[in-house]
């Protein structure tokens, strides 16, 4: 049915939590190679859970998540670590190590995967160049603006040349200008062939982009713009 290979595929995925909210039920969708997809929906609808499941940070109770060639049905912790090297993750709260410079934060993502030390410097430099931060290599997160910190986090997500970037509200903590800049960066990354799955509350951004949108409501997939008319489901 889908000719383009998928990098992320959810098949009837259910994952519930004891607290009652944030879980997902029987969610199915695919993210094709090179595709940019938005995840929208109210707080607690399950957007972050979808991203956690895609990162294999959570495993489904039922159904299957396939990501970067691996399946959630049969996977070890060691294999999860290897799958994550093909995934770039970006968060609302940046998740940078405060005591390391921008350069070291990005290099860390290569070092922990056992990348050869000789090539790390050049790869980090290139990733920070892509996000426009070559002048802030030695700056600590505390010395950077929110937008700059998010760009460091994006550089860290890119440095391993991932198949897909999973972005959880990446503009949620940023002002309008920084948000647009970060979104443009993600579009540029996508234009280079990397798939992007981005959770957001910013419906203006979603409408303006024209990208495919998945809308979640109370843990179920309420709307997929690829299957419905454009924008008809977005409130």
């Amino acid at each position: 049915m889908n000719a383009v290979p998928t990098v992320v595929r959810f098949a009837n995925v259910t994952r519930r939590f004891a607290r009652g909210t944030g879980g997902v039920q029987k969610v199915s969708f695919g993210l094709a190679r090179g595709e940019f997809v938005f995840l929208t929906g109210p707080s607690g609808a399950g957007k972050s859970t979808i991203l956690k499941l895609a990162r294999l940070e959570e495993l489904p109770e039922s159904g299957e998540v396939r990501v970067a060639g691996a399946t959630s049905l049969k996977i070890t912790r060691g294999e999860i670590a290897k799958v994550r090297r093909k995934i770039g993750s970006v968060f609302q709260d940046f998740r940078l190590l405060e005591d390391r410079t921008a350069f070291d934060n990005v290099a860390f993502a290569l070092e922990v995967t056992g990348a050869p030390a000789a090539g790390i410097g050049a790869r980090v430099q290139k990733a920070l160049e892509r996000v426009g931060l070559t002048s802030k290599l030695q700056a600590y997160p505390g010395e950077l603006s929110g937008g700059e910190q998010q760009r460091v986090a994006i550089a860290r997500a890119l440095v391993n040349d991932p198949l897909v970037v999973l972005a959880d509200e990446p503009t949620g903590n940023l002002d309008e200008r920084a948000s647009r800049a970060v979104f443009q960066l993600l579009r540029d990354i996508n234009a280079g062939g990397t798939s992007v799955l981005m959770a957001t509350h910013d419906l203006d951004l979603v409408r303006a982009s024209g990208f495919r949108t998945l809308e979640l409501n109370r843990g179920t997939l309420a709307y997929d713009s690829a299957e419905a008319g454009p924008m008809e489901g977005l409130g």
Binding site: R55, E57, G78, A81, K82, V83, R84, R85, A109, V112
Partner: peptide, 10 residues
């Protein structure tokens, strides 16, 4: 958490 996130093994 960040180590695991970027693909470090246990």
């Amino acid at each position: 958490a960040i180590m695991r996130l970027v693909g470090a093994t246990d």
